[in-house]
Design a protein around this nucleic acid. Sequence first.
DNA 1: CGAAACCAACCAAACAGTTGGATGTCAATT
DNA 2: AATTGACATCCAACTGTTTGGTTGGTTTCG
Lengths: 208, 208
Amino acid sequence: MSPRDSAATRRKLLEAGREEFAEHGIAGGRIDRIAERAGVNKERVYGHFGSKEKLFHAVLEAVKSEHAASLPRPGEDVGEWVGRLYDAHAANGTMVRLLMWEALYFKDRPLPEDGARSDVYATKVLALAGSLGVEPDSTAAMTLLSLIGMGAWPFAMPHVARLVVGPRVLNAQGSADLRAHIVAMASAAVRGVEHTPAVEGGSEAGRA
Amino acid sequence: MSPRDSAATRRKLLEAGREEFAEHGIAGGRIDRIAERAGVNKERVYGHFGSKEKLFHAVLEAVKSEHAASLPRPGEDVGEWVGRLYDAHAANGTMVRLLMWEALYFKDRPLPEDGARSDVYATKVLALAGSLGVEPDSTAAMTLLSLIGMGAWPFAMPHVARLVVGPRVLNAQGSADLRAHIVAMASAAVRGVEHTPAVEGGSEAGRA
DNA sequence: CGAAACCAACCAAACAGTTGGATGTCAATT
DNA sequence: AATTGACATCCAACTGTTTGGTTGGTTTCG
């Protein structure tokens, strides 16, 4: 280990950065506050990460791989998978917010890490298609996109959720009801929508 | 008209503020840039709106009522209504972004205008329930929430959409395909999920 | 001793908001 | 119809503060 535990400092900065950026975004996030939260001199941010933007990316990277790890691949019961996604967001409110800041920041430019990440999703499409017994084509991909949206939307737009459904969403019972409803809708949607039937050696791939 | 057309200046500031805030949010938005975009001195921002935050709210207010006006109430064909919502977002990319900045900014505190806006949504729940022939209770409200999510999600998270579905979403054909798929999923979801059957004089209301 | 981690103090640029005066508009007064 | 006074719009220049980022020196450890 290097002099004066550098790894721990880095971890503390990432953690503090996550809180700060989740709350205020990259433009609103303050380096001084991050350093203070981490109990570390602000120069350390630059020593470890180089710039505010770089720290922001590092935080996003960490959060996304953590998120990916916490979520199983779509399995037999697709509805329940959406439920799991819902739970993951319910358990960790900072995640959606960070993803939203990222989305707003990058508009629709390709992300730096693009390649690796699109593999992650390709795998998910494959898993979903497998468990539905359909082709993993662009139709399946669009289904996945909507399923993710259904599970994440109430957390992305909590104030819309509260306005539409009422303040019940905030308490445990209301949130459980919403979860159940979303699971039901997701199941129904997947059941009722047409997909390309699976063909044996098939992979028309869908990235056409 | 008052000396040196004040109303026009105000309009130009609102317009410029909309562009600036849609792109950079409230923390990243710059008053100087807004004034410049509007071709107006920056002091006018304060003369008309009082502060950056107040201008931000005014912009949001304008955008939201515009959005509400551009979108019909849910009618017979619920899937198609989601399609319309999709179209509205496709035609005006700034809208979702502003709503996202707002969501992030207000976290889950009640919005200042809360009351009026929840009426808007109550009306929509009523319309949706009516056209489905079900009770306008909290179940119907949750359905509405998910439908909105399905239509808006690809625009809220364009980079996720691109990663999942591939770059096709960016061109006209891909976007049309996605729209069709979402319409189909929304229809299927609404068809397949259970709602409280409508009772004659019924209004258990669902705001319990 | 040498290298890397660390920090207090510092800096230049950017920023939201202000000020004081110039300019245009209208309506009352002559 | 011209004069004038009251008032609102508008602007160039300014201000105090906050901010991301730097610097030069100090501590800690192998």
